[in-house]
Design a protein around this nucleic acid. Structure first.
Lengths: 148, 148
DNA sequence: TATAATTAAATTGTGCACAACTTAATTGTT
DNA sequence: AACAATTAAGTTGTGCACAATTTAATTATA
């Protein structure tokens, strides 16, 4: 497997910059919703599955409590979510949408539409790219499982 | 163009997590070199093109002075680089490798080898993935040029 | 040639991202 | 039942990433 130390030939660099530049595209789109990109991802999870605990949220997004705790605090201050301690297991904290947080979903509906338009990409290519990214992740996970 | 609000169907999410998980893979590899992932990218640029100014460095890595100034300061403290003010234009600051920084290149040579091994990917697939990422970025840039 | 506009770095402030640690609740084991 | 191990959140500290502002040097222009 060829591998030079040139920046542009590193897949890590291409992933890193592609991710950053795509995130940059989201900023002006998310600004009217008062959400950062990471906060938007959390809201996506909650619109799918409300009353989720921090642990599960972290697993979906690959984020730990060090990132999520303060992030959820900010979403709480924005009035989009609230934290409720679970009664069955008092270690768990359930994150739930407020009325305002649920209502925001409607405004968010056209975020993906706008982004697709900006990317100017056809459906087949879009799905091919999705699969490649998922494949990269599964290769990373396979390695993780092989080792520790 | 189909677009649902489901997390896993968002290309942004796949890019974001793939990038984070690949970066995580680098951490133990870079640890003996005493470099973070971002610092490693800066070193890659310097090994290619020494005595580069912060402006150009930022253009290569899509980073601004707010990120680079403190990062370069840390690389200076590590003894890998030094900053020298340009004589022709005293606004510019040239970043140059020290002997220690140049010597580090040898240790870094097998970083890409290790990563490829971990990804367990054949050359054809690797290049296909690289092209996909470059294509995503060029679509983003095209949009940027269409608008502002 | 003054001065206005532009440019390169640095600084300040906010928000991730993550390692390491703390605290409190639950589960396992003897 | 007592206590050790585990688990879920939260906290602390470091290092990006980036917007906005500041400072100093250079270039453009009236």
């Amino acid at each position: 497997m060829k591998s030079s130390l040139t920046l542009e030939h590193q897949i890590c660099f291409q992933l890193y910059t592609a991710s950053k530049e795509l995130t940059r595209l989201y900023r002006p789109i998310l600004e009217p919703l008062k959400l950062t990109y990471s906060q938007y991802l959390v809201m996506l999870v909650l619109w799918e599955e409300d009353h989720i605990d921090l642990k599960q949220l972290g697993e979906r997004l690959t984020l730990d409590s060090g990132t999520l705790s303060p992030l959820i605090k900010r979403l709480t201050q924005l009035g989009y979510v609230e934290k409720i301690r679970a009664t069955d297991d008092e270690r768990r904290v359930l994150v739930s949408l407020t009325a305002s947080g649920s209502a925001l979903r409607e405004q968010a509906e056209d975020v993906p539409v706008k982004v697709s338009g900006m990317l100017n990409i056809d459906e087949a290519t879009y799905f091919a790219y999705m699969e490649m990214l998922i494949d990269i992740k599964s290769r990373l996970r396979e390695f993780g499982e092989r080792q520790g």
